[in-house]
């Protein structure tokens, strides 16, 4: 958040949503969303419960394809190759190999820490021990878990604490070197200390990767993000630099939500 802020036009884009509608069967959960996602920046999605933040995030890695009756319209372009992630011709598996997601609750596989972090690589057919070991270590280091985990790589992952499990899930998401990291309320199940360590981590990670994060915690949005998007009942109400949104929002509703008078 270096001031003065560079002109938006000069920033490289990593992705952008254009005219995005999303339907759960007959229910339209996202309405005509246009939003840029800038490269190697953190974009926070905020808004009252049920406004469609998770739905929006899950469009990026086509999670909605796993369930019947869901429908997308419009596009999410991924740069630089300008592919439309929502295109039916694009395999959702390809999309999920390029973008990683960290979920609200830590969801380790009932396997060892090593196998958890290595899983994304194994899916890609990488099975050589040496390569896996190197990548797992690198990912665990990036997720600030290496020191705690290095002596227990072959223990069951559920023996880790909740915060460690979430960092392991981040390592698992990082191991495959994604172009965008999608976080859906990654700290809502964690205590303040674990939350702080994950926020620190996000600040470090944005050197390497573009991040999109859903959060209910206004301070967290203000601390970690460069851009903030405020959503309400499926619509994008306001988008801009995080400082602008938090200091002088254009919409009264945004201000009401941020200051806790609404939502």
């Amino acid at each position: 958040m270096a001031d003065p802020k560079p002109a938006l036009e000069s920033l490289p884009l990593k992705a952008h949503a254009a005219g995005l509608n999303f339907h759960y069967g007959d229910f339209q959960a996202l309405k005509n969303i246009d939003m840029p996602i800038y490269d190697k920046r953190v974009t926070a999605l905020i808004g009252p419960s049920g406004c469609g933040k998770s739905t929006f995030l899950r469009c990026f890695n086509r999670m909605h394809d796993l369930y019947p009756g869901n429908r997308y319209e419009g596009e999410i372009r991924l740069h630089p190759d300008n592919v439309n992630l929502l295109d039916r011709a694009v395999d959702p598996i390809e999309v999920r190999m390029r973008l990683s997601m960290v979920f609200q609750k830590p969801n380790p596989f009932p396997k060892s820490i090593f196998e958890n972090v290595a899983y994304g690589l194994r899916v890609r057919g990488i099975n050589q021990r040496a390569v896996l070991e190197e990548k797992v270590e690198e990912a665990l280091r990036s997720a600030a878990l290496w020191n705690e985990a290095k002596d227990r790589l072959h223990e069951q992952a559920f023996n880790l604490s909740g915060g460690q499990q979430q960092r392991m899930c981040i390592a698992r998401a990082l191991a495959t070197e994604p172009e965008i990291l999608l976080f859906d309320e990654p700290t809502s199940a964690l205590d303040p200390i674990a939350t702080a360590s994950i926020e620190e981590l996000i600040a470090e990670l944005k050197e390497k990767v573009t991040i999109l994060i859903v959060t209910h915690n206004m301070q967290q949005a203000a601390r970690v993000s460069d851009f903030t998007a405020y959503m309400y009942i499926g619509e994008l109400i306001e988008y801009g630099w995080t400082d602008d949104i938090f200091i002088k929002p254009k919409h009264e509703q945004t201000e009401a939500y941020i200051t806790g008078r609404f939502g």
């Binding site: 999670m63 999920r96 969801n107 994304g120 998401a173």
Partner: peptide
Amino acid sequence: IPGAIREAAYALGATKWQVVQGHILPY
């Protein structure tokens, strides 16, 4: 098997069969 575990595997780019043989069957 919790949906979250299934989603975790799919989110890493696994195919249905990879999910079945790596997760569904063993668990």
